[in-house]
Design a protein around this nucleic acid. Sequence first.
DNA 1: CCTGCCGTCCACCGATCGGTGGACCCGAGA
DNA 2: TCTCGGGTCCACCGATCGGTGGACGGCAGG
Lengths: 211, 211
Amino acid sequence: MSGEQNGIRVLVADDHAVVRAGIVALLASEPDITVIGEASDGEQAVERALTLRPDVVVMDVRMPGLTGDAATARIREHDTAVRVLVLTTYESDASILAAIEAGASGYLLKAAPAEELIAGVRSVAAGEVALSPAIATQLVSRMRAPTPSSLTPRETEVLRLVAEGLSNRAIGERLFVGEATVKTHLLRAFEKLGVNDRTRAVTLAMERGLL
Amino acid sequence: MSGEQNGIRVLVADDHAVVRAGIVALLASEPDITVIGEASDGEQAVERALTLRPDVVVMDVRMPGLTGDAATARIREHDTAVRVLVLTTYESDASILAAIEAGASGYLLKAAPAEELIAGVRSVAAGEVALSPAIATQLVSRMRAPTPSSLTPRETEVLRLVAEGLSNRAIGERLFVGEATVKTHLLRAFEKLGVNDRTRAVTLAMERGLL
DNA sequence: CCTGCCGTCCACCGATCGGTGGACCCGAGA
DNA sequence: TCTCGGGTCCACCGATCGGTGGACGGCAGG
């Protein structure tokens, strides 16, 4: 293991320089936490996580190139000792599940107060799980939901084209299937989302980060 | 005036603690810049801007309560000596125009490198205008666009209800007008956005931050 | 003053959509 | 093995939508 007496060794990954500096500044003010590196995209995060072997990686979900989820998965694939704490701007983000499945040990909102972030890093370093209250709530409600509200790849694809303003027929042509098929997918998607019109379906799917 | 020899006095306003800390950390490392205060929402920003009278207010567009635009307008209404530098996460944000009309002296992306932010603060303090390259491009393209793509309040209102999945008739009832009126507003909005269906209109308006 | 722009409203049409109730194939897992 | 879920397709209906071509009042700016 690393850092029993040196404190918690942290790697910070975020594409926004401003945010990165913020996290570093907040964490550096804590005596038991040391920021040992930074990364500005997913690939860099993976690379540095594997070479520096920090105790905790604080990672933004949305990054150019490799997504936070994907980077998390790749890191944990190679080195399970490195724990990942994921940060997000929006609480309504479908990638919450993705990140947790990818092996993240925590999921916090960027809007969270400084103490929450710091406490989160300590929890994760200690092997515990750290979740923002808002995120925890969302997770629970998603677990008990009868509909996993997970769209099939095809449904998602159709919905994305709907979002672009295509008609059912046009979507059919684009996907090389009949209009009837498109309507079927769409109706199923409506059902899962609990709506009955295409526009609401699109906005809802966007809110949930399904698109 | 203030701060000829004390350096540039800055007030930082952002609802995200992490980002706020980041901006402060970045600016504080510059000898000619002093952060004299912070605010976590619009009202606070206005209040502190007027009492502290900083040279520059670095302000996020999206904040709970009072928007960045609104806060900017209110500050400049009372004290034109205070200049405002607005930060945004997305380059496709309709509030760019709003902020500039409100009297902002600069508009930067949060993704901007640290040097850009610092240079921006210096420029704005010197009375110049600071724009991110991406934002400047967008501004120009919007100026030369035949359609200002600005929806009337009523059109925006209708479009927002469309986004919620309401039918034209339902929207009419909600707004106490006839269905025909709703259709008129919608058609005009389609025209301005260059689309011909409600769903695309909504997604486009969202992309442009018009909703 | 009068020329826009905005908001309101009307009638009418064809096109598209939402919804029903089927059907078939296939691959994965019980 | 057989069931179940995803993906494909069909016909048919009423409802809604997109689009046209008007109309009228108000009020702000030239």
